[in-house]
């Protein structure tokens, strides 16, 4: 039984990392305002949302299964307060931080109509911190970290996210960016110029 939980905990962690990677990629694509090949923009947004929810479910299973594992020696407090763990507290703590950020991002996303656009956006930026924390946790804590398949998997995820973030930073990332006026919504108020 313990072995089964352990395997499930490991497996769900790896799947969650894969799903988070897909979600980050789709999130960046959503921000660009571009469709994906044949997939319209609203579908990209919906898949982004659903993949994120699925990843969260996997993380929930990941936590619950490992709570029942005698080797990990997890306590409920380790789910929320980082760096208190009995085994590999630093690597475990990174995972805890990622979970905290995940909870914040998911709650503000699902309730964005109530928390408002500004809070939603500000908290959503934390995803860019959450993903590296999750990756580092999977490498540092993961039983499979030294296996070549896992190294290849982690490298592929990293390459994809780095490439997407690189694209995010280029001019022309947002659809229509090239033909829109640069004036940002938060442009400072101008001094009066009179004709």
């Amino acid at each position: 039984m313990n072995e089964a939980l352990w395997a499930l905990g490991r497996g769900t962690g790896v799947v969650a990392l894969a799903l988070f990677t897909v979600s980050v990629l789709l999130g960046i694509l959503t921000r660009s305002g571009r469709p994906l090949l044949g997939l319209p923009r609203f579908s990209v947004a919906l898949v982004h949302r659903n993949v994120s929810i699925l990843a969260t479910v996997f993380i929930a299973i990941h936590l619950l299964t490992l709570l029942g594992d005698s080797f990990a020696q997890l306590r409920v407090i380790d789910f929320f307060v980082p760096f208190l763990g009995a085994v590999k507290p630093v690597w475990l703590g990174l995972g805890t931080v990622a979970v905290d950020l995940l909870v914040a991002v998911m709650v503000t996303s699902l309730l964005r109509r109530y928390v408002g656009r500004r809070v939603f956006r500000a908290v959503h930026w934390l995803t860019y911190a959450m993903w590296p924390f999750a990756l580092a946790h999977s490498i540092g804590n993961g039983t499979d970290a030294s296996q070549s398949w896992f190294i290849a998997f982690a490298a592929a995820c990293s390459a994809a996210v780095i490439a997407a973030v690189g694209w995010r930073l280029t001019r022309g990332f947002v659809e229509y960016q090239g033909i829109r006026q640069a004036a940002a919504p938060d442009r400072p108020v101008r001094a009066r110029r009179n004709p």
Partner: peptide, 24 residues
């Protein structure tokens, strides 16, 4: 309009109602 960023989702969902202008 103060919130709209012309991402285009609404124009895909409601093509009979909404088009996009030259800035999206």
């Amino acid at each position: 309009w103060t919130a709209c960023d012309g991402r285009g989702l609404c124009t895909e969902i409601l093509p009979e109602l909404l088009g996009r202008d030259e800035w999206g």
